[in-house]
């Protein structure tokens, strides 16, 4: 088809990238992480990811239809929301709760604000924050990684009847005969018992945790690839991680027996996934170059503050939501000077 002369208004970009191309690339980058989650936690993780993604897509479709917007599934952004949400939940999270999280995340975090491009906060994290507040026990119930029969059977709590309490996993975990399984993630063990898991294990992901947050290494590789493809602003993850490390350093130097080392901070919990895939949400982060650095440092340092001094074990979710909320303010603080105008005015 001959396009002829294309006439467009500014900005005149050399490389034309559409929203759905960016989103598809991000989905592609998330796939290895999802695959590792399934490999590590088995069928339950697979069902969890399918549920969150499916419900997120349905919610998007439903609200688009309600507001007469046509099909907004084609931009793929809701798939990212669904996958990210699934990756941040514990692998044995009851599917009905995951569905609630996906619905609330997309409906409250995105659709009510007007859809893609208008959301103030990252929808996946809105959904997760809601279930964190609604079901605090279920969302901190962890199951061991690499359970022997993980491809044959489900974690008992996965298939809980809707509106019912999760089926207990204690007996099931005991039946696995794992040595030294305490039911806590490395982050919780560090927080309450001040014992650090080996950095190598935490970094490579041979530990318990949320479905897709365990392997910092894999996330790092996928994130770097995405940054290399120029599909995300590398300044955001780098400044988030730098903020976290810088905030953790002085405490660790003061009392290394009590506070975690910066390496442990970076490789544990959801920080790595959040830094690369959630803080970098294009809609909810500031738009100026200086702004994103401030935003990243703020999220990173706040995460560490919540982890060390808050009641919660992991703080990256609230840190990003707060960073998102501050985003527009940071953008307006850091407006570049218009050429030809004086600094003060």
């Amino acid at each position: 088809m001959d396009k002829g002369i294309e006439i467009r208004t500014s900005p005149h970009l050399k490389r034309v990238i559409s929203v759905d191309k960016i989103m598809r690339t991000v989905v592609l980058a998330l796939l290895p992480i999802c695959a590792f989650a399934v490999y590590q936690f088995g069928l339950s993780a697979l069902l969890l990811l399918l549920t969150t993604t499916g419900v997120a897509m349905w919610t998007e479709w439903f609200f688009a239809r309600l507001s007469g917007k046509g099909n907004t599934l084609a931009d793929w952004s809701v798939v990212i929301t669904g996958l990210l949400l699934g990756l941040t939940l514990p692998p044995g999270f009851p599917l009905w709760m995951a569905a609630v999280a996906a619905f609330v995340g997309v409906a409250l975090g995105k659709a009510l604000f007007g859809g893609l491009g208008y959301n103030v906060m990252n929808p996946a994290l809105v959904g997760r924050a809601f279930v964190q507040a609604a079901f605090p026990v279920a969302i901190t119930t962890w199951t061991p990684a690499f359970a022997p029969g993980r491809f044959m059977e489900l974690i008992p709590s996965t298939l809980t009847l809707p509106f019912m309490q999760p089926n207990p996993v204690k007996d099931w975990v005991a039946g696995l005969h794992l040595d030294g399984w305490s039911g806590a993630t490395p982050l919780a063990i560090q927080k309450f018992q001040h014992i650090e898991a080996p950095i190598a294990d935490a970094f490579s992901g041979m530990i318990a945790g949320s479905a897709g947050e365990t392997s910092a290494l894999l996330i790092l590789i996928c994130g770097l690839w995405l940054a290399w493809q120029r599909m995300l602003d590398w300044r955001i993850p780098v400044s988030v991680l730098a903020g976290a490390a810088l905030m953790a350093l002085p405490f660790w130097l003061m009392d290394s027996g009590h506070y975690p080392s910066p390496w442990f901070v970076l490789s544990s919990g959801g920080l790595m996934l959040a830094a690369w895939f959630m803080a970098s949400d294009m809609v909810a982060s500031p738009v100026t170059a200086r702004g994103v650095v401030i935003y990243g440092l703020f999220i990173g340092s706040l995460t560490v503050i919540i982890r060390l001094f808050g009641g919660l074990v992991e703080g990256v979710m609230y840190a990003i939501l707060l960073g998102n909320a501050l985003g527009p303010l940071i953008s307006s603080w850091t407006q570049p000077r218009v050429y030809g105008t004086s600094k003060k005015s």
């Binding site: 809601f130 609604a134 605090p136 279920a138 809980t160 019912m164 309490q165 999760p166």
Partner: peptide, 9 residues
């Protein structure tokens, strides 16, 4: 039923 999961939020 007794094992209803309350939405604490």
């Amino acid at each position: 039923p007794a094992d209803f999961q309350p939405w604490i939020v």
